[in-house]
């Protein structure tokens, strides 16, 4: 019984070979030049205006989409919790189901909606409202991000909210807290771990996407994901591509570190409340 550890060995070989070594390779390519010498030039390329612009736009759009997703998802999750639907797996299903249709096709369908003569503008002009030209702008990409990643915000928040027992909420009210105080001091802190995982699951893919910006930005808008993809697939400069990926990874790590820190603080506070 004690020596079951060997069952993990095949996986450990796999893990080192296909997770650890590949990451080391990115670092290696990112820090060397085609000639073989160690250099920081690849990373310094991020300061080139076109790359810096792409990174900045990516950060901006992914930040906004994360906030929009949170604002849309939290009330929804709260409503769903209060509905007391018997099988929570049904709720989960409704929000996972869209993912069974190819996400590239679903994003493409947004072209139909947002085009200048698209569905949205036809509805607007039917009501004699001014039409919008959204397609091929950063706003279209932002809508695409919110659309694609909203379920990843809804599900973790909903899961953390259904776990909160009614007794805790009622206890807060019995002790004289009004609805607002109950929310701020009880419900929000207890659901915070769900919010954290939701934020990570929306922010990271939004920051690094290149397909959404390709489809809805009409190759007029470049995100950092597009820049990296082109370095590998078109320019074939793997050193530059790896260098820029390293910069991207730094931003991912920073965002995770910030959230992990918040998560810990909130957990402590949550512990005091119960």
């Amino acid at each position: 019984m004690k020596t079951r550890k060997w069952l993990a060995y095949p996986y450990l070989v796999w893990m080192v070979g296909f997770i650890v070594v590949p990451l080391i390779l990115i670092v290696y390519y990112g820090l060397t030049s085609a000639g073989g010498g160690i250099t920081l030039d690849n990373i310094a390329l991020i300061s080139k205006p076109i790359n810096r612009g792409a990174l900045w736009l990516s950060l901006e759009l992914s930040f906004i989409s994360t906030i929009v997703c949170l604002v849309l998802a939290y009330p929804l999750a709260l409503i769903l919790r209060n509905l007391k639907i018997k099988s929570s797996s049904f709720v989960v299903l409704v929000f996972i189901l869209p993912m069974w249709m190819n996400s590239l096709l679903r994003t493409l369908a947004w072209q139909n909606i947002l085009e200048n003569t698209g569905i949205l503008n036809q509805i607007l002009s039917f009501f004699n409202l001014p039409t919008l030209s959204i397609i091929n702008t950063p706003s279209a990409i932002m809508i695409g991000m919110v659309y694609n990643f909203l379920p990843f915000m809804i599900l973790p928040i909903y899961n953390s909210l259904v776990k909160i027992s009614d007794d805790i909420v009622n206890a807060a009210k019995d002790l004289g807290a009004n609805n607002f105080q109950t929310f701020i001091r009880v419900i929000w802190p207890l659901s915070f771990p769900g919010v954290v995982s939701g934020v990570i699951m929306v922010f990271v893919p939004s920051l690094t996407t290149f397909a959404i910006s390709d489809i809805l930005g009409g190759s007029k808008v470049l995100l950092i994901g597009n820049v990296i993809e082109q370095q590998f697939k078109i320019v074939n400069n793997w050193h530059t591509g790896s260098g820029l990926s390293l910069v991207l990874m730094v931003f991912i790590l920073i965002s995770m570190a910030i959230l992990a820190k918040y998560d810990k603080n909130e957990n402590k506070a949550g512990g005091q409340i119960i």
């Binding site: 893990m15 997770i19 990271v204 690094t208 790896s242």
Partner: peptide, 27 residues
């Protein structure tokens, strides 16, 4: 340690995982 390394492909950006694997296969 093993569990946190296991989480890397799930938390990391797809594009980074993809590139790292491609570099490995080519190497």
């Amino acid at each position: 340690t093993i569990l946190s390394i296991t989480n890397i492909p799930m938390l990391n950006a797809d594009i980074v995982t993809a590139i790292s694997l491609m570099l490995l296969f080519v190497a």
